[in-house]
Design a binder for these strands. Structure first.
Lengths: 338, 338
DNA sequence: CTGTTAGCGCGTTCAG
DNA sequence: CTGAACGCGCTAACAG
């Protein structure tokens, strides 16, 4: 029909006919069947965001950046949670391929490369977010974890800390590895002897943060500062510290990767490396929309966004006399709440 | 083809043929085109969750409940954010109708009834979440806001408070209205004279919480306790209190609707009415799947889930001598951080 | 500028 | 038990 031309605004239609069609559409409250259109055009005007944990506000912000950007171009977004499981991830990727989404924004779970291969096989454009896939030619948007970690640890060193622990996510996730690399470089810069015991890999969640903190608290001499690989790890670590009455920052400084959105916390207390999460989502969606708009074969681009150290009250110089090897017990353990 | 029968496991296929087809499928890494299937069957195996604010963990939990449940039956979920705007909402609803989702889970924005009508017109099953639509025959899943508010305010009264303010969301949103109703009933139960000045409607976000708190802090005699309609409002209110050096709970008690997920806060401090958010999502998805499985014409059901008062440290008896009308200034304003 | 023809890749229906 | 014919609602590619 000519109707198609009117709706898609393609080809020539006389103003009169157009008006007539428009009227009919309004009268019938006609909505074109997108399915049929998609079947024909091979494009669904849908992209997917596959991420590891939607309950993390870092990813929530990314999601909003993606959604807002995609919508400006008429794209819908499907959100998928892998819970950091490679298996869930591949399951979702299959689903998305079947549903013929036009492209996939992927925060890869630990060690996942199979999904990318699968997506490639089916000719789907992919943008990797937040994390880096070694030796893959693919669009990427992230912050420089190594540099961010370097700044964070450098901050601790500048305060006078020498025994600094790092608690982070899975070894196989690039952000974890990079954050540890930045940590190591910061130590090396100052000629501080690295201690393998003080580097702990785990999961990017609260229970793991708790466990890892318990582990490093048992070490003697005890570290005077902790660098937490993300906000959930920090929460777990702080719980462990509170339990045994260690005060922050008097007895232990803590610096964290990822801030919480403003308004989220009653009184921002943690010194953090803040990533522009919304912007990551926005840029990633932008890259994807570029690909979708034509330059599908262009060289892969990598966008590295800056992160920023925000100094607050969870970091301070170490105590002049190290009494940390005794177990202090105070009444108001950490001194920060809710 | 016979292939269709194999894939859908419908009709008779000889084991041999089936084996042959299976082999071919594996070899070619064949994935059926869901679009074509959907076009034919008029079903997309997709439901949508339209909510007001994905950055609120209450809705994030609901989203997870929905997703987990839908996936068990092979349904995909589209998440949509309306930012509490009726206009965005109707836009999304149009999009979803066009995309032929099988059903819509809706957290209606203030006063929205147009969306529901539109969805009905197009024969889409709808489940309303969290909020109540007056005079509509439709499936609903929510908690009893009136009862929850009653318990919260009753708790304050039991502590000895008499001048209690309530800060809540838009008047047109049922949860706001119900929470105020519960508040009023709790006062009436004890024969406490209601004061219209102490009831403030606004938005369910941080800035609004701040503004509303400023407003009630100017009232003399000043209230000794605040009931906040949701967590974001509480955050804003607490910021206002801190700014002027009012301590919680010494100078002002505060009780809040909605808890934060465990691990979210360093040390849970707020006394809250906790709603089973994940369960709301789960039940709503369950209701939808029921409809989709057949009983489309069954009577609408309403599921009301219980909420629970969790008493923590933000509530205490009012100070014996009321000095609240003077503006106290302390060094450690609120005494709770991060 | 408008209409016609021919599928997109499936599932339904009905003969083999 | 299997295949052939047909159509879901739309658009690409041509004529008119």
């Amino acid at each position: 029909m000519t109707v198609s031309r009117v709706i898609n605004d393609s080809g020539y239609v006389s103003p009169e006919t157009r008006a007539k069609v428009d009227r009919a559409i309004a009268e019938l409250d006609y909505m074109p069947n997108v399915l049929a259109r998609q079947l024909r055009s091979k494009r669904t005007k849908t992209i997917a965001l596959v991420m590891t944990d939607i309950s993390n506000p870092f990813f929530t912000s990314i999601a909003r950046g993606v959604e807002d950007t995609a919508r400006t171009q008429g794209y819908a977004v499907m959100f998928c949670n892998t819970y950091e499981s490679e298996c869930e991830e591949i399951g979702y990727v299959r689903l998305l391929i079947q549903r013929r989404v036009d492209g996939v924004l992927l925060v890869p779970a630990a060690g996942s490369t199979g999904s990318l291969a699968l997506l490639r096989e089916h000719g789907l454009p992919v943008v990797i977010l937040d994390r880096h896939l070694r030796a893959e030619q693919v669009d990427e948007v992230r912050t420089d974890s190594e540099a961010g970690a370097h700044v964070a640890v450098r901050h601790l060193i500048d305060l006078g800390h020498r025994r600094i622990a790092v608690l982070t996510g899975p070894k196989a996730v690039s952000t974890s590895a990079d954050r540890v690399a930045g940590y190591r470089r910061a130590l090396a810069d100052e000629g501080i002897e690295p201690d393998r015991e003080l580097v702990v890999f785990g999961e990017y969640n609260e229970p793991s943060g708790y466990e890892m903190a318990r582990q490093i608290l048992a070490i003697r001499p005890r570290p005077t500062a902790v660098f937490a690989g993300n906000n959930f790890i920090a929460f777990g670590a702080i719980r462990a510290l509170r339990e045994e009455g260690t005060r922050i920052p008097e007895d232990m400084s803590i610096v964290v990767f990822d801030d919480l959105p403003p308004g989220w916390v009653l009184d921002p207390f943690l010194t953090v490396v803040c990533q522009p999460a919304y912007e990551i989502g926005k840029q990633a969606a932008g890259l994807m929309l570029d690909r979708l708009r034509g330059d599908a074969a262009a060289d892969p681009r990598t966008i590295v966004l800056p992160s920023e150290l925000i100094t607050r009250r969870s970091t301070a110089p170490p105590r002049p006399i190290d009494v940390a090897s005794r177990s202090p017990r105070q009444t108001d353990p950490v001194g920060n709440r809710s």
